[in-house]
Design a protein around this nucleic acid. Sequence first.
DNA 1: GACGGAA
DNA 2: TTCCGTCAACGCTGT
DNA 3: ACAGCG
Length: 347
Amino acid sequence: RRPRVGKTHAAAPSAPTAKTDPAIDTLCDTLREMEARGTRGTLTLPGGVRVPVGNLHKVFWPAPGLTKGDLVRFNLRMSAYLLPGVTDRPLVMKRFPNGIDGKSFYQHRAPDQLPDGVRVAMVRESPDRPTTGVPYLIGGTLQTLVYMAQLAVISQDPWFSRVPHIEQADIVALDLDPMPDTPFTRVLEVARWLHDELERLGTPCVPKTSGSSGLHIHIPLPPGTPYDAGLIFCQILATVVASRHPKAATVERMVKKRPPDVVYIDYLQNIYGKTLAAAYSARASTFAGVSTPLTWDEVHDGLKSGLAPQDFTMQSIFKRVRVVGDLWARLRTSTPADLRAAFRYVD
DNA sequence: GACGGAA
DNA sequence: TTCCGTCAACGCTGT
DNA sequence: ACAGCG
Ligand SMILES: [Mn+2]
Ligand SMILES: [Mn+2]
């Protein structure tokens, strides 16, 4: 049995259980009225900014029967948890105007006319090319969350760096992607191995469900870390674990060459311009999953307890968050480790 | 989904 | 007013 | 140059 690190948590939720805001409740009431009336309308956000919303009845997730209105409501109610993870970060939009089963498309360039308080910054698509870049939406305000829902953007997909230091990642992530025949217990197993290694290196790390079928492990970086350094750190970790457990994990890039029942440890997201769904973000998965922070105890005990990603949804998440608080806050409060520790693996 | 131009 | 067409990403890697 | 990848 793994020795327990730190206290057995039970005492106080790691943060604001009380991230409840009367202004948000009022907005949700207004939204309900618009839905009942079957009209489009305008939400007036704190600060007086007006954001038009419409097509609230349109079904975006057929299986649970959730609508575009449910997405707007989700972003409103989750905003206190969602915003810290997107603040100052360029956001890649993937739009689903006809729900998760309709045709979707990516969009980087922000529209010309935006509601007040929706931030935009010129960002280069590649760091070493002399372009002026394109106007990206920058996360951080409630207006942006509501506006993006109106554009039928389902998930919040932030960069790993923040303006204005856009070439320096402040976080890296290991993206655990199960192949079609991979049982989720195996994903948990691989996550556990990665956690054990990271703990040996003294590196803080926090797991979450992806909101689809996999897991993400995020690691805070020391200030000023270039993308390349974070990428190599993750490459080393992923490669060490994959070569130690070839029947369970791989870093093989080509889908055809991956066994159908292993976990692809995708470390290649840690590149300038790439993204991963933010913590507490809704996802375009059939079951309306939410990318949900977990404790390492939940990951380690997941087989016994029957942990399943499908249990963390737009409908279920609020109850959980009220109980466990903001598990993702640790990512911002813990001291990043020296990445050079990982280089002793190199052989 | 937003927008501009045609019907 | 309604209808309709058009537009909405990208860079890295391997072959 | 082009296909595969996320
Ligand atoms: Mn993934
Ligand atoms: Mn991936």
